[in-house]
Amino acid sequence: MKRPQLKRPALLDARNITRLYGPNQGCQDIDFTLHQGEVLGIVGESGSGKSTLLRVLSGLEAPDEGQVIYHSTQQASAAAGSATENLDLYAIGEARRRALLRMEWGLVHQNPRDGLRLGVSAGANVGERLMALGQRHYGDLRAAGQDWMERVELDPRRIDDAPRTFSGGMQQRLQIARTLVTQPRLVFMDEPTGGLDVSVQARLLDMLRTLTRELGLSVILVTHDLAVARLLAHRLMVMRQGRVVEAGLTDQILDDPQHPYTQLLVSSVLTP
């Protein structure tokens, strides 16, 4: 009988990450481990350092102190086969880091316009990462584009339309398709449902939950919306003034908050 894997291998280690723009501006002493297939939510008020932490973790900004260790299983070296390789994100050099971002990782921006190429069609947007990986067959690229548009519930007949003719929610779906097309192992999301109305948010969340489960994605999700966190995240970190004040399972934190700030956060949620 096949048993579920109980102790999942670690995918990403953050070790004492500090990135400060001024006293208490940024994030300090962040320490955690993300496991394979896990969705980690980072919540907190604006200015708490969530986005800074995400930028450091996703390779966009070097930390003042600390390390980001990624456990890569992709062709570590020809001889090693499928052995894992521990990559220190800021020690491996820019070429390797950018290759990692392009192939094994994905980044979903809060504003889809930041993540899309607005000058080219939806199909070209979805195909870009595949082309960067060296795919040079137009028919295959187009088929992949249509397949992914369907998976994010966009009409595949609109493959040649410009992203600016899409609504905000559709642009966000397109951005997600464009990121997931290369089947990354780790995806960073910065407020993926920000700026969308409630019914569109609900459908997008539903879709994200299905996709992460189907693809076995690991996700680091930054949000200020506790409802989004409850729906998507397995585990939560609550941040305040650049530090993690509480961390644990999502239900545990939201139903039984221990830290006064978390208690305040949970009690501030509006219920209609």
Binding site: R98, G123, A132, L133, G134
Partner: peptide, 22 residues
């Protein structure tokens, strides 16, 4: 310049893709 240095030329094909699509 970074793209040239690291041989990140995937975007050149985005332009050609767009030509064929249109």
């Amino acid at each position: 310049r970074v793209m040239h240095a690291l041989e990140e030329y995937g975007v050149m094909h985005v332009k050609l893709y767009e030509d064929i699509a249109r």
